[in-house]
Design a protein around this nucleic acid. Structure first.
Length: 255
DNA sequence: ATGGCTACGATCCGTAGA
């Protein structure tokens, strides 16, 4: 089973890139973030024409998550049950026997801001949700844009980013608390190139300088992680004209 | 020196992203 996550930063704009990428990289599951489309505007037919099943939970302009899959998703649940949130950031479904939770973690804007507090509250709610889902689904993957670089090696310039949003200790602690429910970062199960990142600012030629962060993660339950045969970041789409600022992350599971 | 892109929905600028 091949699973990918990709923050497309507007599905409307990135549809050509997504279709080209899927043609070259067939996937069983693709988790998208920042679709920025209300549900009536979701390009369902266009994706179904590629032989994919679709599930989506979106809103205009901001946020929005979607799951594309080669087999029909079941038990589709949008949002974090019991956590009131108008922002469309979470979508779960069971696909081919695996429970998949697609997440778009809040950015947090700046340490100490209202949005930062929301991010930490949101993380706590996600942890409780994942903990409950793990009890029901041993084969669980929680993937998406986490908006946290887990460690300094996931940051191009740790000194410059020290204490900043996306790299601050409370955010990293929230991510570790999520992992402590029983998840593993698939990417770090394997030897990886130094300075592996999944997001680069549009400005300052950040991609050319590889001035990025690794904030897009595929976390798997321990039984599923043990079946992970590969996890990599595909930088190719970031090199195209008018790219998303995020690259897709892919994992392959021998199940 | 504190911005530099990009997307969006609103007008030719503000909000947000990360």
């Amino acid at each position: 089973m091949r699973i990918a996550t990709w923050n497309v930063n507007s599905l409307r704009v990135r549809m050509p890139h997504l279709k080209d990428w899927l043609a070259a990289n067939p996937m069983d599951v693709v988790a998208l973030q920042e679709t920025k489309l209300a549900d009536p505007d979701f390009p369902r037919e266009e994706l179904e024409a590629l032989g994919l099943h679709v599930a989506f939970s979106g809103q205009r302009t901001y946020n929005g998550v979607a799951l594309l899959s080669s087999v029909e998703p079941t038990d589709v649940v949008a949002g974090i049950p019991g956590f009131a949130d108008e922002q469309k950031r979470v979508l779960a479904a069971t696909i081919g026997g695996v429970r998949v939770i697609d997440v778009y973690v809040p950015n947090g804007q700046a340490v100490g801001s209202d949005k930062y507090d929301y991010k930490l509250r949101w993380f706590a709610a996600l942890r409780d949700y994942v903990s409950a889902e793990l009890a029901r689904h041993p084969q669980l993957v929680v993937l998406g844009d986490y908006n946290v670089a887990p460690e300094d090696r996931d940051v191009h310039d740790p000194k410059a980013w020290a204490g900043q949003v996306l790299a601050s200790e409370p955010e990293r602690a929230a991510l570790r608390a999520l992992l402590a429910t029983g998840l593993e970062d698939c990417f770090r199960r394997f030897e990886q190139p130094e300075k592996s990142f999944s997001w680069w600012d549009y400005r300052m030629m950040a991609f050319r300088r590889n001035a990025g962060l690794r904030i897009d993660l595929i976390l798997a339950s321990v039984p599923l992680a043990q079946a992970c045969a590969e996890c990599r970041i595909d930088k190719a789409p970031r090199k195209l004209e008018r790219p998303s600022d995020h690259a897709p992350v892919v994992a392959r599971f021998d199940i």
